[in-house]
């Protein structure tokens, strides 16, 4: 089993955290994992991305050139990475901010209105968790429990009151896929 994913979006959309949660969740599930961020001046332009690899063998290159899973939270990210997704892979895109559909026909395309759903839940910041839910449902790579255990570890104690909201967001994201 091996999964290569790229998470990309604006700074502040929580793309780094999304990637980290998948990596932590993978570790929790007993897999070998790596997480690799964009860094330095690359971050200054307001866009951010990270590569995540999950594997039951040794993780080779932590830098993902051809992802199986692309998560694009904004339009520049979709434009930058769409062509690189492996045939048969997934493109999850934030339909709240991206008005042009991906053109690829050899991959599974999953539009998620992450911002609207987050707003419905009463917290604009959980759009990334909605997206994460969609990924879990579509790829079945990890369980909600794997993610929630990890989130509990990453979130500082004083933020733990937000855990139920985050779980709710993940489940709403899963519904998007099951309804497709």
């Amino acid at each position: 089993m091996e999964l290569d994913a790229i998470f990309a979006g604006f700074g502040g959309q929580g793309v780094m955290l999304m990637g980290q949660l998948i990596a932590y969740g993978g570790m929790h599930a007993g897999l070998n994992v790596s997480w690799f961020p964009s860094y330095g001046p690359e971050m200054r332009g307001g866009t951010a991305n990270c590569s995540v690899v999950l594997s039951d063998g040794v993780v080779g290159s932590p830098v993902v050139a051809r992802p199986q899973v692309l998560v694009a939270m904004n339009k520049p990210s979709l434009e930058k990475f769409e062509a690189k997704v492996k045939p048969g892979g997934f493109i999850f895109y934030n339909a709240s901010l991206i008005d042009t559909k991906p053109t690829r026909t050899d991959v599974y395309v999953v539009p998620v209105h992450a911002n609207e759903i987050a707003a419905e839940l009463g917290n604009d910041k959980v759009g990334n968790m909605v997206m994460l839910g969609a990924i879990l449902a579509a790829t079945e790579i990890l369980s909600v429990d794997d993610i929630m255990v990890s989130l509990k570890k990453i979130l500082p104690e004083r933020r733990h009151h937000l855990l139920p909201l985050n779980e709710q967001a993940i489940r709403r994201g899963m519904e998007v896929v099951t309804a497709m």
Binding site: Q20, A23, M27, N32, V33, S34, W35, F36, P37, Y39, V59, P62, V63
Partner: peptide
Amino acid sequence: DAILGQMMEP
């Protein structure tokens, strides 16, 4: 190198 410094692993 930059990758080994920036990447996260268990």
